[in-house]
Amino acid sequence: MKGRFSYFNATSIALGFAFLYIPILLLVIYSFNESKLVTVWGGWSTKWYVNLLSNEGLLSAAWVTLRVAFLSATFATILGTMAAIVLVRMGRFRGRTMFSGMIFAPLVMPEVITGLSLLLLFVAIGFDRGFWTITIAHVTFSMCYAAVVVQARLFDFDKSVEEAAMDLGAGPVSTFFQVTLPIIAPSVISAWLLSFTLSLDDLVIASFTTGPGATTLPMKIYSQVRLGVTPEINAISTILIGIVTAGVLVASYLTRRQATREDRERRAAVA
């Protein structure tokens, strides 16, 4: 059974990957298109990437997006880690089930609803919409993902390691920074990368919560596409794909490396 080649499996894998990646591949290829017409191949060129550098609109949108992503990923990771610690460490406290439900609800909440409700909130409290409202909105939804990632790590964390630190004279805060955080660091970093990626390619929530002067890259691309696809859009999209892919790869590498190391430790402990 294991490792046997079969034409059925090979075909389904080929079709599956084709379905997923041919559109993206086309986009990447056409970003190197010489021709101004998106659908006509005119030979290889990197001129659209060069042109990008002088496209103020796209560049400023990219800058806004990176700043939002960086800030929201950072805050989301801090809050998500705190939430995960409370859920895993505090034992059974009053309202724990409700709290954990509320943390994870936004994972399955339609983005439109998250966006709309945040918009209503910002309007109600009279918060000027713009850069900060997008950032806050992104913290709100990516925090849940961060919490899930960190929580998974904390579940198989030997609590007596923290107890040992306290027994040796480290207070709770000191224990967290000297022992807990270094041990869960890989999962915190992957939580950050995940939050960063989520913020980077969010369109719906950003559209709801944005205001004048704060246009993110996905919003800019979307609005430009409505006027017609230009090869420049292909180029910036290719760059975006590159960043997101790198983020996901690093995050999964960190998680895997940690898993293999733990596996090795466990085997060494048995031996």
Binding site: S160, V161, A164, A165, V179, I183, E265
Partner: peptide, 8 residues
């Protein structure tokens, strides 16, 4: 500690 609880 029984599990030794060493800092990995």
């Amino acid at each position: 500690f029984q599990s030794y609880a060493l800092f990995p």
